[in-house]
């Protein structure tokens, strides 16, 4: 019984100890001086895999895997959303799927020289807002085929074509954009 207790305690400690190295913990003899002590700072690792379902948006990703860019259209007000949504942001009605044109234009963009941790290795990369004829909103994608070190407002309005990643990763980056000419 006593041995088992000891065992559990040790395992618990192993978990808490991960990444923690602390030497020479200061401790004054006079307890009134404890508030002047330097803070103890430890490292607490945290890693997790999320199981993420695209739910009702899944057909969009199936489309990209088949080289088809799908948007949606409101069944009531007719607004067309190239970033698909099955519920209309304007009137709240259901939307149905439709294929978007193959040609698009650059609405706005930026060159990211820094990024979130998971994208740092890809810098400099170009984020682009894409507009389609007949659509009421935009699509956020990656732009390639222009020099990220020479950004220009003249790029805006540029005709774009879309390409699809050969090996689908079921991410919105399965489609990307480059100058049409």
């Amino acid at each position: 019984m006593d041995d088992k207790k000891k065992d559990i305690k040790m395992r618990v400690n192993e978990g808490l100890d991960q990444g923690t190295v602390l030497f020479n913990v200061p401790f004054p003899k006079d307890l009134q001086k404890l508030d002047e002590m330097a803070p103890i700072i430890i490292k607490q690792p945290y890693q997790i895999d999320y199981i993420h379902s695209y739910g009702q948006d899944s057909p969009f990703f199936a489309g990209l895997a088949n080289k088809v860019f799908l948007g949606t259209k409101c069944t009531k007000c007719g607004k067309v959303f190239p970033t698909p949504r099955k519920s209309c942001a304007v009137c709240g009605s259901p939307c149905e799927w439709l294929e978007m044109p193959k040609e698009a234009r650059l609405h706005s963009f930026t060159v990211c020289h820094f990024g979130s941790e998971s994208f740092l290795k890809e810098t400099p990369y170009i984020l682009a807002l894409i507009e389609f004829d007949g659509a009421d909103t935009l699509f956020l994608g990656r732009l390639v085929g222009v020099d990220p070190l020479k950004p220009s407002l003249d790029w805006i309005g540029m005709k774009l074509k879309m390409k699809f990643r050969r090996l689908s990763q079921f991410s919105p980056t399965d489609v990307y954009f480059l100058p049409a000419d």
């Binding site: 930026t110 990211c112 994208f119 990656r142």
Partner: peptide, 12 residues
Amino acid sequence: PVGGFYSGYYAM
């Protein structure tokens, strides 16, 4: 997933 970065969004 496209390059999530708030400074990038504001820049656009």
